[in-house]
Amino acid sequence: MAKPEDELTWQDLEIGFVVTEPGNARCYRTGDWKSLKPILDKERCVHCGLCYIYCPDMSYALDAEGFFIVDLNYCKGCGICAQECPTKAITMVPEEEE
């Protein structure tokens, strides 16, 4: 979409509110739903990718060094990655505490 949603007027909307561009769910950043965020301890990570497989929001992506890194713009803080991590490399911490 050309404009952010908050600036769209009723005249800007497509007829029938049809969405003509695929993949624009990424415009909706669900990351601000969370109260806990996952922190990765790279020392303990064995690169198994279970966090990537289990993440219900597909928020994990492989980086150049071979680590699966969460995108906090979309992570809702559910904690499934931390629960499933076999080496306990991921811990959930309150977001305000860095």
Binding site: E5, G16, V18, P22
Partner: peptide, 16 residues
């Protein structure tokens, strides 16, 4: 491909 019958958040529903 197009999406029909999509979701609208409170910031767009009034405009629809």
């Amino acid at each position: 491909p197009v999406t029909m019958g999509c979701f609208a958040m409170p910031n767009l529903y009034t405009e629809t």
